[in-house]
């Protein structure tokens, strides 16, 4: 009734899942309803708002613009994987400290996008932070504290890196 399903195997946040999915099933729906990883949110389903941003093989992507069949064999990370231990990650902690979230709906997408940026550089300018996050919409914060939080997280991560090199 739901068309021919295709078996896929995917690793999400380090855990392997095998499921059969209809080709048209969007990755966002697969994560949310099939795997019950509901931290990834759908704000527009047409690729504009960025709330559904996840990481596919180490690079951010819109899960509303990807079909679940396409991630067969891939390694995914979602917001639920950002703080596997009790401690929040540096970016999450900076969001908390700087009041960079209000309703929290867009937050997982921002966290994933910020993480991508800081994986590429720990010395971003404010301008670079703004450009890197411009594909994520937030209606609550005016972005002011999000930008501050990412700058602050970069600083913390730089300090950690320096400390670990001592």
């Amino acid at each position: 009734m739901t068309g021919d399903k295709i078996d896929i195997s995917v690793t999400v946040n380090g855990r392997r899942y095998r499921r059969a999915v209809e080709p048209r099933r969007l990755l966002a729906d697969f994560l949310r309803y099939d795997l019950r990883l509901t931290g990834t949110h759908v704000g527009c389903a047409h690729g504009v708002c960025g709330a559904c941003t996840v990481s596919i093989d180490g690079r951010t992507a819109r899960s509303c613009l990807t079909f679940a069949v396409q991630v067969d064999g891939a390694e995914l990370e979602t917001v639920e994987g950002l703080a596997p231990d009790a401690e929040l990650s540096a970016i999450q902690a900076a969001f908390h400290r700087n009041h960079a979230l209000q309703c929290g709906f867009c937050t997982p997408g921002f966290l994933m996008a910020a993480r991508q940026l800081l994986a590429e550089t720990l010395t971003p300018t404010e301008e670079e932070v703004r450009t890197a996050l411009s594909g994520n919409l937030c209606r609550c914060t005016g972005y002011v504290n999000i930008v501050r939080a990412v700058m602050s997280a970069a600083e913390d991560l730089r300090a950690n890196r320096e400390a670990s090199h001592v």
Binding site: G39, T40, E80, L88, F95, H96, H99, L101, G104, P108
Partner: peptide, 21 residues
């Protein structure tokens, strides 16, 4: 005071209507 709301939202454990079982 930093918000007591934040921790679960930052971890992806928020429960908006469409997230409810």
């Amino acid at each position: 005071v930093p918000r007591q709301e934040d921790d679960r939202l930052l971890r992806g454990y928020g429960a908006y209507v469409d997230d409810l079982p």
